[in-house]
Design a protein around this nucleic acid. Structure first.
Lengths: 136, 136
DNA sequence: TATTGTTATACTCTATAACTATA
DNA sequence: TATAGTTATAGAGTATAACAATA
């Protein structure tokens, strides 16, 4: 097992996930939720289906994801101006404040994670991960 | 985001997970379950708590994990010879047959995943992943 | 007819707290 | 007192199938 790429990927992912949780404490937010918030911030008015496609999850799953973020006051389902079936997702003011607080924490988390890797090694790691993701 | 190690790790992990599922079809087994079966095979008589420690999950979580593997006929809870509180976990004959069928599939999956990486690059990737996992 | 959001349903993975039997 | 397995409970994340409203 220790020589398998998949096994090491899994182990690194678990360690990184836990460090992320510590880094963003006391906000209790997952990497997936952070990614969704970032996507909404950078793409105003995204619909739930578009967001699901971007993240690779079903639109029925996205309902509960947005429910959670909305119930915590970070995201609002605004009416879409041109399609009455869909919502235009936006960050709430509280959501914007949250993101501004999270970004430096996530940057620190990234630094901690890569602290034993120089710049070239970080670039190599990202390149290799990309090639693995593309290969499968 | 695309320049973050954590983000790329997550993306690679998702792609690899899906490819794993295809590779082991029609067995419907997750990488985590495969890891548990391998550990039981390589450590006869392991207890649930020991297994949980090895994998990094709580012993209460391990109950349901073993329940599932037992209900599918792959693992047996044998009585521990020296401690009546605990079980000595073993693969059933069906579980041994399953593992023998899975191993070449998982090897093929590993090859597919790393098909665009030469030997040196694979070793580099594993080394970098290990250093990330250790850093956090 | 096709798409968007939703609900009902189901399953996996994860944890904490409290319990029973045993050490 | 401490440990092993268990249960109750809770929550996140994931999916498929079917439905209403809308395109």
């Amino acid at each position: 097992m220790p020589e398998l790429v998949g096994y090491n990927l899994r182990k690194a992912q678990i360690a990184v996930f836990q460090n992320f949780q510590n880094a963003v404490a006391p906000h209790d937010i997952t990497p997936g939720q952070f990614g969704v918030l970032i996507l909404i911030r950078e793409n105003h008015g995204l619909s739930q289906s578009e967001l699901g496609n971007a993240v690779g999850i079903d639109r029925s799953t996205m309902v509960a994801v947005i429910d959670r973020l909305e119930s915590r006051g970070w995201v609002v389902r605004a009416p879409s101006p041109n399609d009455r079936r869909s919502y235009a997702l936006e960050l709430s003011p509280a959501g914007s404040v949250l993101i501004e607080d999270l970004i430096p924490r996530v940057r620190a988390h990234e630094r901690a994670m890569a602290k034993d890797l120089n710049k070239a090694e970080q670039a190599t790691l990202i390149d290799l991960l990309n090639r693995v993701a593309k290969a499968v």
